[in-house]
Amino acid sequence: GKELVLALYDYQEKSPREVTMKKGDILTLLNSTNKDWWKVEVKATANDKTYERQGFVPAAYVKKL
């Protein structure tokens, strides 16, 4: 199945390749080969529509579930 990670801290994206997350968010882990930056998929809701974004977050800010 898919691997999930838990956001340990809030993170505000600093570039278009990154994604914003809030502490407590559960994210889908896409790639953890880089030890510093993990690629995740974030589900977000805006205007009653759910959309998914993929991007990088600092590996130290998340932990595998």
Rank of each mutant, 00 (worst) to 15 (best):
K63C: 15
G1N: 13
W37K: 02
E18T: 08
D36R: 14
Y61L: 13
D48Q: 09
L27M: 13
D25N: 05
K22Y: 10
V19R: 00
Q54D: 05
K63D: 05
T28L: 15
P58S: 03
L6T: 06
S32V: 06
R53Y: 06
K2M: 11
Y9A: 10
T45L: 12
R53M: 07
V40K: 00
E52N: 15
T33K: 11
V42F: 08
E52L: 15
I26G: 00
E3N: 11
V57T: 02
S32W: 10
E13R: 13
A60R: 14
T45Q: 12
N34M: 08
V57D: 02
L8K: 05
V5D: 00
Q54A: 11
A59Q: 05
G55K: 02
T45F: 14
E3G: 10
S32E: 13
L27K: 00
Q12S: 10
L8M: 09
K22M: 08
G1V: 14
A46K: 13
K39F: 15
E41W: 07
Y9W: 11
S32Y: 07
N31F: 07
E13N: 07
S15Q: 06
L8S: 02
M21P: 00
A44D: 10
M21G: 01
W38R: 01
L27D: 00
V5R: 01
N34K: 06
E41A: 14
D25P: 00
E13K: 13
K49H: 11
A7T: 03
R53N: 05
A44I: 15
S15G: 13
Q54Y: 07
L6K: 08
V42H: 15
T20S: 15
K39Q: 11
K2V: 12
L30F: 03
Q54P: 04
A46G: 11
K2I: 13
R17G: 14
G55S: 00
K43V: 14
V19L: 12
R53P: 01
L29N: 00
P58E: 01
T20M: 04
A59K: 06
K43L: 14
A60Q: 11
Q54M: 08
K49P: 09
T45P: 08
G55M: 05
D48T: 08
L29P: 00
Y51C: 11
N34H: 11
A60G: 11
L6Y: 10
D36P: 02
T33R: 11
D10I: 02
D10V: 03
E52P: 14
S32L: 04
V5M: 04
G1C: 15
E18V: 05
D25A: 07
Y9S: 08
P16L: 08
T45S: 12
L8W: 02
E52G: 14
S32H: 06
E3S: 11
Y11S: 00
D10Y: 04
W38K: 01
E18S: 06
V40M: 00
S15T: 11
K43S: 13
K64F: 09
Y61T: 06
Q54W: 07
R17H: 12
Q12K: 12
Y51F: 12
K64E: 06
E13P: 15
T28A: 09
I26L: 08
S32Q: 09
N34V: 05
S32N: 08
N34R: 09
K2G: 11
K43P: 15
D36T: 14
E3A: 10
T20R: 05
L65G: 02
Y11T: 01
W37I: 02
D48S: 11
D10G: 06
R17P: 05
L29T: 00
V62P: 01
T20Q: 03
A46N: 13
N34Y: 08
V19D: 01
E52A: 15
A59V: 05
A7F: 03
L4V: 07
L29R: 00
P58K: 04
A46M: 14
N47K: 09
K49Y: 12
S15V: 04
T20V: 02
V5H: 03
K23R: 10
A60I: 09
D36K: 14
K49F: 11
